[in-house]
Amino acid sequence: MSKQDSATESKAILIVENASYEYRAVRKKLISRAVRQSALGNASMTISSGDAIGIVGSSGAGKTTFARILSGQLVPSSGVVSYLGTDLQQMSNENELGFRRGVQYVFQNPRASFDPRLKLGDSLLEPLKSLKILGNHQNIIDQTLIKVGLDISMIDRFSHELSGGQLQRMAIARALVVKPKVLIADEPSSSLDVSVRAQILNLFKDLTDDEDMALILIAHDLAAVAYTTKQIVVFSAGGIVEQGSVSEVLVAPKHKATADLIDASIGI
């Protein structure tokens, strides 16, 4: 995120340069080129270890598209994403395994992200196996569960036996078991209740203390992001319009989209 690329290059984990994404819209006529619509235009970001970046913007601003490009779920129409100096598009199998370990994703709806037929312990074991993580898997899982504030006995339960908040912790644990270098969370608290939301945000806030990991938190709720992260990136109409430290952005917003978001965030 830092502007002095040269100084931070050694620490940079994930670099996005001028990423754009267009999707094919439905054809309107029988014989016509498919219309291309832009979802993201020329977005760049450098993510270094220890970063805690909040991505905000109204719906349709390109936040999720950007996050999916970061995590390799989408290939940008133009631009380059590189992980530890290697372009994602030109990765060897070995490097790709490293990337898949290194970048983990937490989704909005925890209930939809667990296989209801699996015990949660097995769901947590899955990434350890498929990403070929060495070490005592049971120990890793136990430690991670304690870290996210869950009881170790939860591994014998099924997803429907847990509340939304507990399950979101479980989803975070599943992302953390492989010790990622970058953790991306897309609206992780917006499907949760008020009292539980604070618990989850506190958990993310604790995770920002980890100097070996970068956290990317995406939300439409500016207050939630500002509370949790150190830096803020504002998306609007498919591009990055403003970025800076939380206090810079909140106290002296430069772009209208930022001002709108601050304005819309009604307090008690």
Binding site: A198, A223, A226, L250, G267, I268
Partner: peptide, 14 residues
């Protein structure tokens, strides 16, 4: 009290 206490607002953050 607890519900109000756990509410995040920008004012609080600032």
């Amino acid at each position: 009290k607890a519900l109000i206490g756990s509410h995040i607002s920008l004012k609080h953050i600032k």
